[in-house]
Design a protein around this nucleic acid. Sequence first.
RNA 1: GUGGGUAUAGCGUAGUUGGUUAACGCGUCAGAUUGUGGUUCUGAAGACCGUCGGUUCGAGUCCGACUAUCCACCCCA
Length: 452
Amino acid sequence: MLIKRPKGTQDILPSVVNKWKAVEETVSQAAEQFGFREIRTPVFEETGLYVRSVGDTSDVVTKEMYTVSSKGDDTFTLRPEGTAGVIRAMLENGIMNEGFPRKVYYIIPCYRHEKPQAGRYREFRQFGVEMAGSASPYADAEIILLAATVLDGCGLENVELHLNSIGCPECREKYRSALREYFEPHKDELCPTCNERLGKNPMRLLDCKSPICKEIAKDAPIITDYLCDGCREHFEKLRKILDGYEIKYILDPKIVRGLDYYTRTVFEFISNGIGAQGTVCGGGRYDGLISELGGQPTPALGFGMGLERLILTMESEGCEFPPAKTPDLYIAPMGERAQEKAALLCDAVRRAGYAAEFDIIGRGLKPQMRYADKIKAKFVCVLGDNELDSGEAKLKNMRTGDEKAFKLEEFIGEFHNLLIEELFGTGLGDALADSIGDLPANTVPPETNGRN
RNA sequence: GUGGGUAUAGCGUAGUUGGUUAACGCGUCAGAUUGUGGUUCUGAAGACCGUCGGUUCGAGUCCGACUAUCCACCCCA
């Protein structure tokens, strides 16, 4: 009986790794362009970190954490999200003292014990950014603009930005009471879950999907009418800045983040092509979090972007991914003597900076050619007794079928020239000219090419 | 945690009102006169039909339970 992967996890197989690499590349390039630097923190943290930051009543903390007790009394939790650990690391290492604004990004796996569904996994990968030290709406705009830049860089066109402000704790309390007042008369009509939520967290009533609750919620008071002067001005300024960038957004009073630490600006980028779990990116401001975790009160904000949802959206929109790299050369030896030579030749070619393979199964020529074709090798060199005896072999261009003879001792130089020619011929050369041009055009023969 | 769908070779599928050796495509491997790929042709390997139990002379096919998986609620990335 084979052991199977844990529920809600996925194997990212070689055939799709190119998609992940492309996305990771796009994402980190954009982040660095905006002045964010990468940070890497542990996959597990003390459980208390998440209880304090994410909130002890949130779903994530109450029912979705993977928590283990270690040998001592400590309990640890596999990170369910990125912000808490990153803020912890910044505080612990004094990074906050290096001057504001501090801007970091990360690409990390996260873990939540949820029931898997389309776009929802128990292990999922997230691209996240955090910015600390600015209370300005320009900071909010930077974060949103970065997310928009990333999505744009991935080629997405149909992802909507939903924007809201949930105010500071003071305006939120006022708003909560207003909601309770509004819903109280309809108490008996609400669905059971909403009825419960009325007391605990009335803001959750707003995005209930039950038609009855939806109908009742239609005329409910709106948070933005209850913002204090400071919060309202902040939100208005942010909207003005976004307008200046020509970033389209939908004012959505229903955006209510489930993590307790959010204040003021909250936003989601939502795709409608990937099923019910369409939030590709979610984030906002969390001005109270850093002091909650023991630091000096510092305004901060950030977002998390689900990478498998991002890829799903790209697939649903028909985005192209760059193809995986293919070998430059396959060497097809025939017989033991040739295989020995092929091994050395292959090694020399690799040390010259190319991707090369040779037969290590001992197959006949025909299967080797099929294999070379399958792995999309750009060139093939057949090595048999004839070549070894004469010291002369041929390089075959697999795209054109052309063959060119060369002396074995000049192999690397010849191969380099042919490869350049081929790449320019297919139009790839222009892009690659710089990097490849630097590679050695004429290396010493493999026999005398000792390793350091 | 609550619903609903699905379960046949590595992958994608067919399997007639229950009836003998479970079929096909892709993939894999090997051949098609001397040492050259993609196309074509031929052949081979590969499935205890998710698991357990029931109905029946007989179950891939009907029934039940369990498990897995997918989708939805919930929640979120």
